[in-house]
Design a protein around this nucleic acid. Structure first.
Lengths: 360, 360
DNA sequence: TTGTAAGCGTTATCAC
DNA sequence: GTGATAACGCTTACAA
C-alpha cells in the first residue's frame, strides 16, 4: 500500500538510483532533477522504508536503551513511583541526543528479577546499545560488547570491554563524608547500600569507607546495612537495626534518595529525631527530597546528561570505530539541606526552598 | 562481522529455510533438526537482523511513540522537571505493554514549537504510531492515520480518522465541580487553561463551564485565564489577574497540577489565603502535589494504563485490521486533599498522608 | 549527471 | 520435513 522508490521514480521520470540520491543528498544531482523527485515524493507522501534502508546500508539509525523495569510498580508505595525519575530522565537525555545525532531511541525494559535477559530481540533491531546499571552482570558485558557497540551507563568503570559513562561517585562521597565528619563532627557512621550487584552502590560504599577512615570515623560493618534502593526496603532494614537495640550511628548515608526517605521515616516513627539524633543523607536528588521533613541532604547527578553523554559516546563508537574514550565521568554536586544537621539558613544552604525556585 | 542465517545453516548442515523455520517455529520440523539448528545458533551467537526481518516479513515489530519535548528543560524551574512524570509514566506503560505484545517501543520527541514535525523519520521505522497530546494538530491527524496505523493519546476523541485513547475528563470535571459548588458552596469560579491546542485542556474547560452552569455557579470569562501548563506560566497569569484589582473568584480550577501549584504560589505571595480566600484544584496528581501546602486537591489519571491501552489498541489495529474500538476512555478519580477547602480529617480525605503510605 | 544492476539478510512460496 | 529461490525496498558501485 505504501509507495516505494519505484513509484517515486516513475512519477518523476527518473531511475530509482536518482530518487535515492535526491533523498540522501550524497551525490551530485541537477537541481531541476532533484526538485522533480522531491515533488514526486511529496505528491505520493513517500516515506522510505527504514527496514530496507537498514538492510541495504547496514545502519539502522536506531540505538537501543536497556533499563530495569521496577518490579510490580502497581503494588508499590506511592513514593516508589518517584523512582521513575532517574531512569526516565536518562531516557529523555538520551532521546534528545540521539535525535540530534540522527538516530532514534529504541526502549527495552528488563524485568528486575531476570538474570539472563533476552537481549537479542533488541540487538537485532539497533546499531548499538546503551545498558543501564544492573541490566547485565559485569561478566556478561564482554560477550555482548563484542557483538555490538555497547555503552555501559553507571557501571563501575572496571569493565575493559565496553565504554562506560558514569558519575563521579568518589568525589561526591568524599565531599559528603567530609561534610559529615569534619563540618558536623560525626564519628560513628553507617552506609545503607542499594543492590549488591549495582556498581554505583558498590562504588559509593567503597568510597564512603575510605573517606570515613581518612577522617577517623568508623563505619558500621553489618550485613543488615544493605537493601534494594527502595523506601520500603530501607524501612525494613532500619527496623531490624532498631530492633538490635545497639546505639545508633551518628549519621547514615544512603545509596539513593528513596532509601534515605525510608530511613528517615523508620527513625522518626521510632521516636528518633532526624537530624537531632541521627543525620541522614541520600543520593540522586529526586524532586521530593526538598519537600520531606527535614529536607534531604543529597548528591545531585546530571541525569539527562548521563543519557546524552552515553548516546554521544555510542554514536562515536558506531561511526568512527577508531579511537574513543574508555570512560566518561560526569561531575556531581553535593546539595546541603537539613537532614545532615545543617541549618537551612547557614552558609551551607546552597539549595533554596521552593518559593525561591518559583520566583525565578 | 555478525553471523547470518547462511553461517548458521552451514554449521548445522541444513538450508537457510530450515534455519528460519527453526527460529520462528511456524512450520513442522524434525526435533532433531531443530535442536541442531538451535545449537548452531547458540554456538555462533546468532541474532537475526531486524532490518532484514522487517523488510522480508513486512512487519518491523516496532511501535513509535511521539511526544512533546518540554522546551529548554535546563533553563526551567526545578519544579518543571516534575512535568516529566506524565509523559514518562505513559512511556513506561507503553513499553511494558509493547514488550508483552512482542514489539519494541521507538521513542521520538518533538520540539514543542515545531508546527509541522517531521514524522516521516519515525514512520519509516515502525509498524504503527502512538501520538501524544498536541504533537500533531487535529487536521494533520487524518493524513497521517491514512498512511500508518495511528493511535491518538489524550486527544479530544473527535477525530474520526484515528483511534483515540483518553481519560474521562467529563466525569472528573463534573465530579470536581460538584464538589466545589455543592459541597463547598463556591459560586464564582475560574478555570486556568493549558495550551489552547491541547484537546485535554479544551475538554476540561468545556465540561467545567457546563457543570458550573448546572450548579448555578459562574465562570470568569477572560482571556487571561489561559496559560501553558507550567507553574511559571500560571504565576504570570495570576499576577495579571491580581493586578486587575477585581475581586477574586471563590475557586480556581486548573488544567493541570503544575499550573495549580503556580496559582497557589502567586496567591500566597500576594497575601491571599488558600483555600481560606480562594480554593485551588489541579489535574494529574503529580507526586509533589501531596507535599505542597496546602496539599493539592486534584484528579488522578491512570497514566501507565493510558500508555498500555494505547499499545494494545495499536497492536490490534496493526494485526487484525478488521474491527476495532474508535475510542477508549479510561476512568479518573478525584483526589480530595486540602486546597479545595476540605479539612484533611474530614470524611472526604480519601488520600492519606505520606506516613500512611509508607507504613504499608 | 544519471541509469543499471548487484547485493543486504531475512521470510515465504514453491517444489521435491 | 526440507531445500531452492524469489521477493522485500533500499543503497551503492560501476557504467555510460
Amino acid at each position: 500500500v505504501s509507495p516505494t522508490i519505484y513509484d517515486v521514480a516513475e512519477r518523476a521520470g527518473v531511475s530509482i538510483a536518482t530518487v535515492s540520491r535526491a533523498l540522501n543528498g550524497r551525490s551530485y544531482l541537477r537541481a531541476e532533477t532533484r526538485d522533480r523527485v522531491l515533488q514526486a515524493v511529496r505528491d505520493l507522501h513517500f516515506v522510505p522504508n527504514g527496514a530496507a534502508r537498514g538492510l541495504s546500508s547496514g545502519s539502522k539509525r536506531v540505538l537501543g536503551l536497556l533499563f530495569i523495569r521496577s518490579s510490580g510498580a502497581d503494588e508499590m508505595l506511592e513514593l516508589e513511583g518517584e523512582s521513575l525519575l532517574f531512569t526516565d530522565s536518562v531516557i529523555r537525555g538520551a532521546e534528545l541526543s540521539a535525535y540530534k545525532c540522527g538516530y532514534s531511541l529504541l526502549l527495552s525494559g528488563v524485568d528486575s528479577g531476570d538474570l539472563s535477559p533476552d537481549v537479542s530481540a533488541l540487538t537485532g533491531k539497533c546499531d548499538g546499545l546503551i545498558v543501564l546499571d544492573r541490566v547485565v552482570s559485569e561478566r556478561r558485558v564482554a560477550p555482548l560488547a563484542k557483538r555490538i557497540p555497547t555503552v555501559l551507563l553507571a557501571g563501575s568503570g572496571r569493565s575493559r570491554s565496553a565504554v562506560t559513562v558514569r558519575v563521579d561517585n568518589a568525589a561526591a562521597v568524599q565531599q559528603l563524608t567530609e561534610h559529615l565528619a569534619v563540618h558536623h563532627g560525626y564519628r560513628r557512621m553507617a552506609f545503607l547500600s542499594g543492590f549488591a550487584n549495582s556498581p554505583d552502590s558498590v562504588a559509593r560504599l567503597e568510597e564512603f569507607r575510605r573517606a570515613a577512615a581518612e577522617y577517623g570515623a568508623t563505619v558500621e560493618d553489618d550485613p543488615l546495612w544493605s537493601s534494594d534502593y527502595t523506601a520500603t526496603g530501607a524501612v525494613h532494614a532500619l527496623d531490624r537495626r532498631l530492633a538490635a537495640g545497639r546505639p545508633l550511628p551518628d549519621a547514615i548515608a544512603c545509596a539513593n534518595d528513596q532509601a534515605a526517605i525510608g530511613v528517615m521515616h523508620a527513625l522518626q516513627r521510632a521516636g528518633v529525631r532526624v537530624p537531632g539524633d541521627v543525620a541522614v543523607t541520600g543520593f540522586d536528588d529526586i524532586p521530593v527530597g526538598r519537600h520531606v521533613l527535614p529536607p534531604l541532604t543529597t548528591v545531585r547527578q546530571p541525569t539527562q546528561q548521563l543519557g546524552s553523554a552515553a548516546v554521544v559516546a555510542l554514536v562515536k563508537l558506531i561511526e568512527d570505530s577508531g579511537q574513543f574514550q574508555r570512560e566518561i565521568v560526569l561531575p556531581t554536586r553535593v546539595i546541603i539541606r537539613a537532614s545532615c544537621g545543617c541549618d537551612l539558613a547557614s552558609p551551607h544552604a546552597y539549595d533554596r526552598p521552593m518559593e525561591a525556585d518559583l520566583a525565578t
